[in-house]
């Protein structure tokens, strides 16, 4: 039992991080909190990948004279991409949040639902239409 727990220790932690982040993404009402959760969620996955790359006794995957076993370089490469994706998504999301705050005056999901329900289904304002009138 202890072997299972310790042998895959990194994996358990990544699962815990993912669950924390995932929970924040779907259950938190604050839009910024959701994005915080999203970051944690994604770093969880990154932890998974990087843990895959580790080999017992392996060294940094840079070829030197030592020649010992090297760690797997591929997940590192993939995770460089994933980090960039993560920060890009965060940037877009935050830009959206700024816009949302400007037009709603709040960044709480449930408050926005309340405001929207008072909005009704308005017609899309059309410049052309107004010129015809």
């Amino acid at each position: 039992m202890i072997e299972i727990i310790l042998g895959k220790y990194n994996y358990w932690i990544y699962i815990a991080l993912m669950m924390i982040g995932f929970y924040a993404m779907i259950a938190k009402e604050n839009l910024v909190k959701k994005i915080l959760g999203m970051n944690i969620f994604q770093t969880g996955v990154i932890l998974l990948y990087v843990s895959i790359s580790k080999v017992s006794g392996g060294t940094v995957p840079i070829i030197w004279d030592k020649g010992g076993p090297y760690d797997n370089p591929l997940p590192h490469v993939l995770m460089l991409t994933a980090i960039v994706v993560s920060v890009s998504t965060t940037a877009v999301a935050l830009a959206l949040i700024v816009r949302i705050y400007k037009s709603y005056g709040t960044i709480e999901d449930d408050q926005i639902v309340v405001i929207n329900s008072h909005d009704g289904d308005k017609e899309i304002p059309s410049e052309k239409a107004s010129t015809i009138i």
Binding site: M25, I26, V92, A93, L96, R99, I100, S103, I112, I124
Partner: peptide, 14 residues
């Protein structure tokens, strides 16, 4: 144009 588009986009993002 509608401000609901922003929330639509955000929910889609999440």
């Amino acid at each position: 144009k509608d401000r609901k588009a922003l929330m639509a986009s955000y929910n889609y993002l999440i």
